[in-house]
């Protein structure tokens, strides 16, 4: 049986009480303040002998944008389908807006699946009206709201066209509009930017930011780590059907930051206290500290040596580096178990 790893032992090989305490405290505080928009506890899903999702517990708060990341086949889509009540979990429970999912709750959820599709023979507006109707929207309200979204997303010239007449990117924008037409409080976007040109990516990102500011909880599944870093408050990483990472983006980055520093200074830091290695990196220097070295010791030593310091920061890894590191480690674990 494969071990279900946590952020703590992934990062260091041993628990880090301070981070765990901070992270858990933060979550508890948030949970106590508001009812989570969606909360899943101990979800399991098996297809035949294959375990697609194992013991997944996640939650989203109002106004929070969470990135759901993981390699292909990790269990993201199955997890999303269980959150949306498209699939029933074998074990575990899901509550949306504080209660088991209901038709009323469904009408407050917007879902843009990765595999997108609309009725190709229908025009844009009938497509949107039908999907809005299924969410319980009145026709007049839906038409009014559709008009707003057409303007916002630049779809006005295309609203009378058939879906089959639209380019892939425009079709995707139309489906995004249909996803948020009914002003959902919980939105799931699965690879929303794939196939879009940079202009439309920006349009959609602005729309996502606006939805967040209006209080919607947004789950955002993607392989584009830069998008996650730009848009998400928190990251949930799934691999092998299990959550392997869950926490605020800044905390995770800090947690994965090693003993590396970046310093923009006029003096080569090599030889300063605690510095193992220094190399030129653009406008400054990338430093590797000695085992147990503290950044504050390096800063003090540089100041004592009269260095003029413009920037001094922990060199945090990108989310993509963290992703590759975590998934690579998971893969290694699997291979070791199989052997």
């Amino acid at each position: 049986m494969r071990a279900c790893l946590s952020i703590i032992d992934l990062c260091t090989g041993a628990p880090r009480p301070a981070f765990a305490q901070r992270y858990n405290d933060g979550r508890m505080t948030t949970a106590a303040a508001t009812t989570p928009t969606v909360r899943a506890d101990g979800l399991w899903k098996r297809f035949g002998g294959h375990v697609a999702v194992r013991d997944v517990s996640i939650s989203l708060d109002p106004g929070e944008v969470v990135g759901l990341v993981g390699p292909n086949g990790a269990g993201k889509t199955t997890t999303i389908r269980m959150l949306l009540d498209i699939l029933r979990p074998d074990e575990g429970s899901v509550s949306v807006f504080g209660a088991p999912i209901s038709p009323q709750a469904q009408s407050r959820i917007g879902y843009l699946p990765e595999e997108r599709g609309l009725y190709r023979s229908l025009r844009v507006i009938p497509n949107m009206l039908y999907l809005a109707g299924l969410k319980g929207m009145q026709r007049e309200h839906a038409l009014r709201r559709a008009g707003e979204l057409f303007t916002l997303l630049g779809l006005e010239p295309h609203k009378g066209k058939k879906i089959s007449e639209l380019s892939r990117g425009l079709g995707q924008l139309v489906q995004f509009a249909a996803t948020i037409l009914h002003e959902p409080a919980f939105i799931v976007l699965d690879e929303p930017f794939s196939g879009l040109d940079p202009v439309n990516v920006r349009v959609m990102k602005d729309a996502v930011s606006r939805l967040r500011s209006e209080g919607a909880a947004i789950m955002f599944s993607t392989h584009q780590m830069t998008d996650v870093e730009e848009l998400c408050d928190r990251v949930i990483m799934i691999d092998g059907g299990a959550v392997v990472l869950d926490g605020p983006l800044a905390d995770i980055k800090r947690q994965f930051a090693g003993n590396d520093l970046f310093v923009a200074t006029d003096l080569d830091p090599q030889g300063a206290d605690g510095v193992l290695e220094s190399r030129r990196d653009g406008p400054g220097y990338a430093l590797r500290l000695v085992e147990g070295g503290a950044p504050e010791d390096v800063l003090r030593s540089l100041l004592e040596r009269g260095a003029k310091i413009d920037r001094f920061e922990l060199a945090t890894p990108s989310l993509e580096e963290i992703f590759l590191w975590v998934v690579g480690r998971e893969q290694a674990e699997v291979e070791r178990d199989e052997q």
């Binding site: 599709g117 190709r120 999907l131 299924l134």
Partner: peptide, 16 residues
């Protein structure tokens, strides 16, 4: 068949 091939089925099932 069209709804399955178009993948709109998933959107529909998130609503009903």
């Amino acid at each position: 068949s069209e709804e399955k091939e178009n993948r709109i089925m998933e959107v529909l099932l998130s609503s009903l």
